[in-house]
Simulated assay, not measured.
Amino acid sequence: MWVKITDVQGNQFEGVLDNEPYYLPIEVGTELSFGIEHICQTEYEEPDGEKWDYYANTFVIVSADVLEREEFHFMLRDNPNGEEDSGWSFLSGYEDDDYLSDTENFLVVSIGVVLNMDDSILSIVQQPPLCAYERDEEGTFQEIEDYDWDGYLNG
């Protein structure tokens, strides 16, 4: 959805909805408050903008729980399905099997949304598929060497 920004206070914004969202029941002209983490693209032409295109134009799958909690503890990279698909999926680690089996619980967002939650994974997101990582007790992501790719890909 597109919002015309009317006020900026640090990383917090106010604006007016400029189009009718497909999934949300709000109307054009609605005033909104939002944070910088909710912005994935702007019309502002930045001189170094091409450097940042990766963060806005590369997509990942996240569970809705990741967005709700604003944290994730598990990430895996499958083979991408298309040019803008990174192949990455992010889970909070709190989802149960019923939650995971419902596709309605997953969203496609730009990788920048996830990096705004935790940019310590910048070097990890460059790893080639197939790889999986889990956050340890110290909060650091560790590669899962024995991840069951056969079960994941064929299950």
Rank of each mutant, 00 (worst) to 15 (best):
W2H: 06
V3F: 02
K4W: 00
D7I: 00
G10I: 00
N11F: 04
Q12F: 06
F13D: 02
E14Q: 13
V16R: 05
L17F: 01
L17W: 02
Y22K: 14
Y23D: 11
P25Q: 09
I26E: 00
L32W: 03
S33P: 00
F34R: 08
G35H: 00
H38R: 10
I39W: 02
I39N: 02
Q41I: 06
E43W: 01
E43A: 08
E43P: 00
E45H: 06
E45A: 05
E50A: 07
A56M: 02
V62T: 14
A64L: 13
D65V: 12
V66N: 08
V66E: 04
L67C: 09
L67G: 10
E70R: 15
F72G: 04
L76K: 11
D78N: 12
G87W: 05
G87T: 09
S89C: 05
F90M: 06
L91G: 08
D96L: 03
D96P: 06
D97Q: 14
Y99K: 08
T103Q: 15
T103P: 00
N105C: 13
N105E: 15
F106L: 11
S110I: 01
I111N: 06
I111M: 11
V113I: 15
N116Y: 13
D119N: 15
I121A: 05
S123K: 14
S123L: 11
I124F: 07
V125Q: 09
Q126A: 15
A132G: 07
Y133F: 15
E134A: 15
E134F: 08
R135A: 12
T140C: 11
T140F: 11
F141S: 04
Q142S: 07
I144H: 04
I144C: 06
Y147I: 07
Y147V: 01
W149C: 01
W149D: 00
D150T: 06
G151T: 05
Y152T: 09
G155L: 04
